[in-house]
Design a protein around this nucleic acid. Sequence first.
DNA 1: ATATTTTTATACCAATCGGTAAATAAATAT
DNA 2: ATATTTATTTACCGATTGGTATAAAAATAT
Lengths: 212, 212
Amino acid sequence: MDTEEMQQAETPVAKVKSRGRPREFDHEEALDKALNVFWKRGYEGASLSELTDALGINRPSLYAAYGNKEELFRKALDRYMSGPVAYAPDALQEPTARKVVEKFLTDSAALLANPDTPHGCMLVQGALSCGEGAQSISKLLAEYRNRFQQALRLRFEKAQAEGDMPATIDVAAMARYVVTIHQGLSVQGTSGATHKELLGVVGTVMANWPSP
Amino acid sequence: MDTEEMQQAETPVAKVKSRGRPREFDHEEALDKALNVFWKRGYEGASLSELTDALGINRPSLYAAYGNKEELFRKALDRYMSGPVAYAPDALQEPTARKVVEKFLTDSAALLANPDTPHGCMLVQGALSCGEGAQSISKLLAEYRNRFQQALRLRFEKAQAEGDMPATIDVAAMARYVVTIHQGLSVQGTSGATHKELLGVVGTVMANWPSP
DNA sequence: ATATTTTTATACCAATCGGTAAATAAATAT
DNA sequence: ATATTTATTTACCGATTGGTATAAAAATAT
């Protein structure tokens, strides 16, 4: 018991003493750099040379750590979902449909024109159109997009049940409408629109939002 | 004089008797096939092999007729603008701002989910994100997108002057809003949304359109 | 000290990328 | 008939693509 505790004290956090030569780069830090490249270039536009340059490692290290290009993309995408885009599922928790949409679109405007990250949404520009070899990625991204749209529709159904959205509204069309705005904002951001300009669009949307 | 007239009678339309071996494919017909490939695959996603296969010609013929891949794309884009997308400038001629937007978005819905052509808008998915070598194309497409947005803004200014749009409205934001919808619809179409589903979104937009 | 395990670095792979040289084929001009 | 012009065919080019075989390097286990 005592000796085991001493060993744990040597390596205080979760860094279990591994056997072979230690990795010289930070696994998750490098994943963030890969995310940045894929976010900006898209799946096909990001070459392995640009990826290894950005990560500061060579090709065999990348393959040993992440599998291959597609698996690296999927892992970067996971980081994107749980990091920059985590605001989206959060927005569904707002108390009214109006506040849900206002938070979702306002936070989207901030993300999609953030000067510190690539512009636009990775789910949109990651592989919107592509060659034959990237269609599994294209489908994956479309699934993620549709998933949120469905979650939004369910949220609107709840809003109707709670009386903060008119019962006459077609919630499926309304959810598709809001997601359409988001995806349009993504294209706008990619084209160089500023945060303020995107907020102007969001203001236009909210000014015309149906009152309950 | 007589002999010249006889020659013209032999080739009645504009087909001037050219010197060398005649081209075995129709120049504009092949351009339409190239348009289809670029529209579906994007600039980078369309390989020269796929292009020559679709056009039914071999590589040197393509280069002799159109220059290179980038010039072929630009010529296909011209066809796209004067063909499938000609409805957009037409919509600006409608008598009121509301009718302008309604026609623009309704016709967009028909185009972006047309089962007979690639889905989505070529101006959006032609090169939304791309590698270093396609950025001139990416900028070109963004220019086209911004051009229509500006034309729409000018049309809304006219509408305000004519009293069919509230003077309180920020026309720049409103134009950006409408173009954002179009671009979002494009992403939706690419993801497989049907014509009817896109019309549902257009209906939601028009239901909330500000009355003059 | 030696063996084992894992990562790194170098060098390389076949396939595909966009693009072209050279020769043949098919038309007109003289 | 011959020369000239243009298009097609075949074969190829260097560069880049995603991916790997091999061996040296750096750690731990015994």
